[in-house]
Structure formats: C-alpha cells, structure tokens
C-alpha cells in the first residue's frame, strides 16, 4: 500500500501509532508504533466520502482524536476525520476553501485549541474546531518588517504557545522560469527555521531563527521535546539535520503588526505552489 512516494509521516505518541498519507491512492494509513516488516495497517481511510486525492501531508490531534488532512487536489481545504475512522467515511468537518486557500503541512495546538496552517497569504491561525471557508483568527504574513517570507511547515511545540516553521529571508530572490524547480544553492535559498507563537499576527518577526547557511529545500520539521531539538529534512541537501533549539521552548510575549500582502497573490485555483513530489 505504501510506495516510493510518501511525503509525510507522523508519530502519534499518545496512541503509539504511525500515520502516513498515501497520496496516489487517496488514503490515510495508520500503523502500530514500531511497525516493521510485514505489518498491515491498523486502519485505512479511503473512498469517495473521504474525498482525498494527492493528499501528501497531514497531522494528528492525539488529544481530540482527529486527523487533519489537506485534501491535496485543489480547493485549498482541510478534511478533518475522526482518528478511529475506518474505510470510506466523510470528514467530520472541512476547514478552508477557495478563499482561505489552505495547503501544506498543518499542525494542531491541542492545548490551546488552535490549528496552524499555511494559507493564501501567510501562516493562518484558526480555532481548532473551525469549519468552513472562514477567516482565520490571525495571519502571520512575513514581510519587510519581520525580514522573512514563505512561512511554511509549522510544528507546534507541546507545552508552549510556540511553533517552529521554515522561512526564507524576505530579500531572498525568487526563481526564474528557466531555473531548476528546487533551490540548488544555499545562498539562493536563504531558508531557516523560525519560532513564532500562536498569538502572533501580521508581519511579526520570529523570536529566533536558526539554521543559517545550510538549507536548500527544507521538506519538513520534527521535534524532540525531551532534548529540545528540532530536526529538519532537506531535499536538495538530501539530509536530516538536528538543531539544538532550546530557545523555542521559552515563553514569549505575543506580537502584532500590520499584515503584509504579497504583490502577487496566488491563483485562487491553486492555493499554493504545487509541492513537487
């Protein structure tokens, strides 16, 4: 059921399960933690009611027992399933739509009840139980004041109101059409790991940045709360690095600033640039 093309893997530590979206089959596969060898999935969500297609990424809310799955193919929406759902089941709610243009990796702050996900013009903060194509509570937009842009791949940090995300320097150049699809050089990418809070809004600066002069194409982040480290997978470097980032577990004051709007907004039909897989 798995193939050579899996773009997300999530460990649910509360239930000791590994959850993997299967984009080509429009499925969510849940395996026992520590699965190895010929182990079938415990549960599969798949079918017309589930409505998934090219669902590359997802996250798990282990406390409220929900899977948050960007539908993948257009629409800019996230399907929320009961964690224990099996087979062809409809989502219990859908967040987003053409207006919100949600996509990318979501993350859930299950302590303070927020959903963090990349939207049309920034990192959106929703109430965890939000439903429909509604305005987020807050938008962290990046911009000239903060000095960052392209905020993506959030990972909320349990025990805090913080999340880490990938960012690029605001002044980093954009690609021209005749260049390779992915950044090939560190100096062009100018990608970093940043820490924000779920209370931030607008063009606010990350509290800390780390990972300068290493990344080319960060694919996603993972957390080790015990050691307060952040791990990053980079496609072009083709590596997994671990960063001491204990500062990301600190307690920060919220920040609010005017929201920055990119001069060229994304196409409504394409909520985010196609994630090359």
């Amino acid at each position: 059921m798995l193939g050579r093309t899996q773009h997300s893997i999530f460990y649910d530590e509360f239930h000791d399960e590994v959850v993997i979206p299967q984009p080509f089959a429009g499925a969510i596969l849940t395996f026992p933690g520590g699965a190895n060898g010929e182990t079938p999935p415990l549960r599969i969500i798949q079918g017309p009611k589930a409505g998934l297609a090219l669902n590359d990424v997802m996250t798990v809310d282990p406390v409220h027992n929900e899977y948050f799955v960007p539908r993948g193919q257009g629409g800019g929406m996230i399907h929320v399933f009961d964690r224990m759902a099996v087979g062809d089941v409809a989502p219990i709610r859908i967040i987003g739509g053409p207006k919100a243009g949600l996509g990318g990796i979501p993350s859930v702050d299950y302590e303070h009840n927020f959903l963090i996900v990349e939207g049309r013009d920034g990192m959106y903060i929703y109430d965890r139980t939000a439903s429909g194509d509604i305005e987020p509570l807050r938008k962290i937009t990046g911009g000239p004041k903060s000095g960052v842009k392209s905020i993506a791949g959030p990972m909320w940090i349990p025990g805090t109101r913080n999340f880490v995300a990938t960012v690029r320097a605001f002044t980093a150049r954009e690609k021209s059409p005749d260049e390779p699809l992915n950044w090939q050089r560190v100096e062009d990418a100018q990608s970093m790991i940043a820490v924000f809070t779920v209370d931030d809004d607008g063009d606010v600066a990350p509290r800390y940045l780390t990972g300068f002069n290493h990344f080319k194409e960060i694919r996603n982040l993972a957390l080790d709360p015990k050691n307060k480290t952040v791990m990053a997978a980079d496609k072009t470097q083709n590596d997994v690095t671990t960063w001491d980032f204990k500062e990301a577990w600190q307690n920060f004051a919220p920040a609010k600033a005017e929201r920055y709007t990119e001069p060229q907004r994304r196409n409504l039909a394409s909520p985010r640039p196609a994630d090359p897989i």
């Binding site: 993972a222 080790d224 709360p225 997978a233």
Partner: peptide, 13 residues
C-alpha cells in the same frame, strides 16, 4: 534518503 520527510517517535527516540 531521497526527497525525505521525517517524523519523530518520542517513545523509541
């Protein structure tokens, strides 16, 4: 590794 994404198993480290 090839176009890798990661998760972290906190139980087994």
């Amino acid at each position: 590794l090839a176009n890798v994404r990661i998760g972290y198993d906190t139980k087994r480290e």
